[in-house]
């Protein structure tokens, strides 16, 4: 049976990972709910994700889901158990990603992270031949309007010169 995960998400009660996948043989889309057992607000999400990724029954459904993505889903579940709202959880993760310094990763880790970024890139990509493709696409971004200063500039920077 050839399975390709298409979308994934979480269910909070009971804590579960949801996979929407395509069965390549039958061509049908199906949903798989994978309970996350022995998981609490104190669990190590990275280790839990790794356990699930290599689980004897579930690994076949998670082949196309990266470990990093599984870890993020576990983080959402753990945050929920800790009482955070979904919005708070997503905002916190976004902040964490903002601080990520890829220059410090190994070659392998950097390649993996770039592959993750490529997912969004390919989804948003416009290629020659697409109906709405414009080679020299120019967009003005409110040059005249008063803009809010980016919060990244508000703090003191040691590197200012």
């Amino acid at each position: 049976m050839s399975i390709v995960a298409k979308r994934c998400g979480v269910k909070f009660t009971p804590p579960s990972i949801i996979i929407i996948y395509e069965n390549k043989t039958s061509g049908k889309m199906r949903k798989r709910v994978i309970p996350v057992r022995n998981f609490s607000q104190y669990s190590d999400c990275s280790r839990a994700a790794e356990r699930l990724k290599h689980h004897v029954r579930h690994s076949v459904y998670l082949e196309c889901v990266s470990l990093a993505q599984l870890e993020r889903l576990h983080l959402l579940l753990r945050d929920h158990l800790q009482g955070a709202s979904l919005e708070e959880s997503l905002a916190a993760h976004r902040h964490q990603e903002e601080e990520e310094d890829l220059n410090k990763l190994s070659d392998e880790e950097l390649s993996r992270r770039k592959a993750q970024m490529d997912d969004l890139f390919q989804r948003n990509r416009r290629r020659r031949g697409d109906p709405d493709f414009v080679y020299d696409l120019e967009v003005e971004f409110g040059e005249g309007s008063v803009k809010e200063t980016c919060s990244w500039d508000e703090e003191q920077s040691d590197q200012e010169f």
């Binding site: 890139f121 948003n124 416009r126 493709f133 080679y135 020299d136 696409l137 120019e138 967009v139």
Partner: peptide, 13 residues
């Protein structure tokens, strides 16, 4: 410049 390599916004410019 605000740009997007994915959708091409302002890249050529």
């Amino acid at each position: 410049y605000f740009v997007s390599a994915a959708d091409g916004t302002n890249v050529v410019k």
